[in-house]
Design a protein around this nucleic acid. Structure first.
Length: 814
DNA sequence: TCAAGTGAGGTTTTT
DNA sequence: CCTCACTTGA
């Protein structure tokens, strides 16, 4: 390794930077990152280190110093939210018209690319995008048609297989199929592809894969984009999958500069194909000479950061990074043990009340600045019940988003049929919705006819005869008439007409519980309206000519230091070969892409001052004044499915790291002795992660108990926080039932009482080592049930994993 | 065609 | 225990 290649040399600024206001207030590392020379670089950006700021300032700096024109760079993110944020902040840094710039999500940019090159990509101009739901129903339909046993090949699994292949860049012919089962899946993959192609639809994976292949197979297109995008900036690089990495590589020729920004310690999406290893691969394959660490944290006090640092230091596979702050220690991290999940929720409710009540005085927390995090969605229920009964407003992240709602999907299906009559997924979705007397038999007949003729359902209708055909023919006629009627209409008018003529509005009006759905349909019209005005109905979906780009740029307000007279686009920046710039995508088609790629807000009633409930995964990228991390128990967090192998455990630890680093001022870590799971009471040990934190930064509100050794000891009651120190010698279960149960919060709907006794059967807890007369030594994995029903799952090194009924088997703790 | 019943399965999720 | 997807019966 050459000296230049040494790790994390904060690269000196090439030449003295212009003392631009852009660069003010950046710390040395940030400044170095922003002003890096135009070469490949990796920024290792810790949580809360100003990553987005560096990215946007870098773009602004490149533009301002004339190193690149707005059309000459591309910035890629994973979520629409991140992309919007980037555009927004860029707009505040520079008077640049960001419309038309290639800043967006991987999928959004691929969509734009494929729209510009639809012919080369072998797609219809207005190809439709299948979301995950659509994809699954398309696969189900396919499997039915080919009489595939869905017991042996569940549609979900097939979907997972297909998506997995695409993420790895594999077409059916490239998949290595050793066993019969895989061969069958590959066959289904092949058939699915043919079906999508026939119907003119692409799924999310296809957007990426086809873009990649087009670049790979078409030298002139590839050359064009390689020459065009001198600067490529990638956000959240640790989340890229194999295909995305290959795609980036494909966009890189001799003279490109890729700026990859990421944090290996926050890589929590391996389960969906993300490869942290891409960071190391990037450094090696791109011969990255500049690596910069951003370790200064602007979010949290040092007790919180010390906890995060210490925890993550237990991971072996790391690039290495330590967060620091100049904000001072702050409060210690509070740790609490409860007797049950109910008690935990109760305590949490009390604590939240306290935090909110203190508002105005110190510390003073707004409800929306309080987050409750958990490992899995199922955990939210108890907490919701508690908050609900206490009358505390709360908001749960992660339900159905706007464009995923059934009524919206129905409306979109009609709209899609206007654009593309061959979209069988949409056809089937609304063929009999609202009900118009088309039964399963008729549908099957139609499907058979279509299969025989090798055409779409829409086209097969004419071949249909008899009574069954008339209703279907009427449906098709209705769609065709709508298409004609809407030809010259605005998007808003089109949607209004479709809503009325499809019968959707009528149907929901008749439905007692249809009011909400009607409201959403109303909202769809609004969404279309604002799409048209804000997005310029997707004009940016088509590659802009240089002239257009200069034009939009000069339209923007007077710039500070941006020389508008200089030619912004080089003369040698021609339109991509075969770009279909003449034909504009229809507003409707653009809106439909938008609906598929941007499913809408993930939270109900935004803007309200409500406590935020979400999984740790969805908390990534967010921050709150106060954070509760709940359910810190072995088996839950780290999750039992991940704890067995080293890789999985390290990812769980990163997840915990993400959770901790969400907190600005105050952090609570909570675990419970018992928890209701799958209808059974489980007895879990506290998470090992709690033992991986620095004692000096913690404050145990309930006494810390010794490891696995004394299951019968200790004190956690569900009650008062911080006031429970006195019962350190009390046997749990017999004391500390002082917490009010939910019934005391609610007059109307009493919730179930917490269990009377939290005594694990025979004192067994997960994680304990036990001895069995026949099997020898083993480790307890789980304990379930009570008294006579109780059983334990034990892993015996010699005999494997066994379930043992505790009323029969003799297990001695050792 | 719709409502009630049955049975399986229950980490994490964006596009 | 709870949710959902799918089947069955009127």
């Amino acid at each position: 390794m050459s000296p230049q290649n040494s790790l994390f040399d904060a690269a000196p600024v090439a030449s003295a930077p212009p003392s631009s206001p852009l660069l003010a207030h950046l710390n040395p590392e940030q400044l170095a990152a922003v002003t890096l020379p135009p070469e490949h670089a990796l920024i290792l950006a810790g949580a809360g280190s100003g990553k987005t700021r560096v990215l946007t300032t870098r773009i602004a700096w490149l533009l301002q110093t004339g190193q690149v024109s707005p059309g000459g760079l591309m910035a890629v993110t994973f979520t629409n939210k991140a992309a919007k944020e980037m555009l927004l902040r860029l707009g505040t840094l520079l008077p640049v018209n960001v419309r038309g710039m290639w800043i967006g999500t991987f999928h959004g940019l691929c969509n734009r690319f494929l729209r510009a090159h639809w012919k080369l990509a072998n797609l219809p101009q207005s190809f439709q995008i299948l979301d995950t739901q659509d994809q699954l129903s398309a696969i189900k339909r396919l499997m039915k048609q080919y009489n595939v046993d869905d017991e042996r090949f569940p549609a979900k699994q097939t979907q997972w297989f297909i998506s997995g292949c695409k993420e790895d860049g594999l077409r059916p012919g490239m998949v290595e199929a050793r066993d019969e089962e895989t061969r069958k899946k590959v066959e289904l993959y092949q058939l699915y592809e043919e079906q999508c192609q026939r119907e003119g639809v692409v799924d999310f994976g296809e957007l990426m894969l086809r873009s990649y292949e087009l670049l790979r197979d078409n030298a002139s297109v590839r050359d064009h984009y390689q020459r065009r995008f001198r600067h490529i900036l990638i956000d959240e690089f640790q989340d890229t999958n194999k295909l995305q990495y290959a795609w980036i590589k494909m966009l890189c020729g001799e003279h490109n500069a890729v700026l990859a920004v990421g944090d290996d310690d926050q890589s929590i999406y391996a389960f969906r194909g993300a490869r942290v290893g891409n960071m190391a691969d990037f450094v090696r394959e791109f011969q990255v000479r500049h690596q910069i660490k951003l370790e200064e944290n602007y979010r949290s006090y040092s007790h919180i950061l010390d906890s995060a640092n210490e925890l993550i230091s237990h991971n072996q596979k790391r690039l290495g990074k330590t967060l620091r702050t100049s904000q001072g220690p702050g409060e210690p991290v509070r740790v609490i043990e409860s007797a049950s999940d109910f008690a935990e929720a109760n305590w949490l409710v009390d604590e939240v009340k306290q935090l909110v009540r203190d508002q105005g005085t110190e510390p003073g927390f707004e409800r929306k600045e309080i987050a409750v995090l958990y490992r899995s969605n199922a955990q939210s229920r108890v907490i919701e019940t508690g908050l609900f009964n206490a009358g505390i407003p709360y908001r749960v992240y992660g339900g159905l988003r706007f464009f995923e709602r059934a009524e919206i999907k129905h409306a979109l299906a009609y709209l899609r049929l206007l654009e593309n009559p061959n979209d069988d997924t949409s056809f089937l979705r609304v063929l009999n919705f609202p009900p118009r007397g088309i039964g399963a038999r008729s549908v099957e007949q139609l499907q058979d006819a279509a299969k025989a003729a090798g055409c779409s359902l829409h086209d097969a209708v004419s071949t249909l005869s008899g009574k069954a055909g008339t209703n279907i023919a009427a449906f098709v006629a209705k769609i065709d008439v709508m298409r004609e009627q809407t030809e010259a209409m605005t998007l808003r008018e089109i949607i209004a007409l479709v809503l009325a003529h499809s019968g959707l509005v009528e149907h929901y009006k008749a439905d007692r519980e249809g009011a909400d759905r009607l409201e959403n349909l109303e909202e769809l019209v609004n969404a279309a309206e604002s799409f048209v005005t804000q997005e310029g109905f997707g004009r940016d979906a088509v590659a802009m000519s240089p002239e257009q780009q200069v034009a939009t740029l000069t339209q923007s307000p007077a710039s500070q230091g941006l020389d508008l007279s200089r030619p912004l686009i080089q003369a040698d920046d021609p339109l991509p070969p075969d770009a279909e710039t003449g034909e504009t995508l229809s507003p409707l088609a653009a809106f439909l892409s938008h609906a598929a790629l941007e499913a809408g807000d993930n939270q109900a009633q935004a803007g309200q001052d409500a406590v935020q409930l979400m999984t740790v995964h969805s908390s990534k990228g967010l921050e709150f004044d106060a954070v509760f991390i709940t359910g810190l128990e072995e088996g839950l967090f780290p999750h039992e499915n991940s704890a067995s192998d080293h890789e999985g455990l390290e990812e769980e630890r990163r997840l915990m790291y993400v959770a901790i680093t969400r907190a600005r001022k105050r952090l609570y870590l909570s675990h419970s002795q018992t928890r209701m799971l799958h209808g059974q009471t489980r007895y879990n040990l506290r998470s090992r992660f709690l033992d991986e934190l620095p004692e000096a930064s913690l404050k145990w509100l309930t006494p810390k108990q010794q490891g696995f050794a004394s299951p019968g000891l200790g004190g956690g009651s569900g009650g008062g926080y911080g006031a429970r120190r006195e019962n350190s010698s009390a046997s749990w279960g017999s004391s500390g039932r002082s917490a009010p149960d939910f019934a005391s919060y609610t007059a109307a709907a009493p919730a179930p009482l917490p269990p009377q006794k939290a005594e694990p059967p025979q004192g067994l807890r997960a994680g304990m080592k036990v001895f069995h007369n026949k099997f020898g030594e083993g480790k307890v994995l789980t304990v379930e049930g009570t008294s006579n029903d109780a059983r334990a799952q034990v892993n015996f090194p010699r005999h494997g994993i066994k379930w043992l009924a505790l009323s029969v088997a003799k297990l001695t703790p050792i």
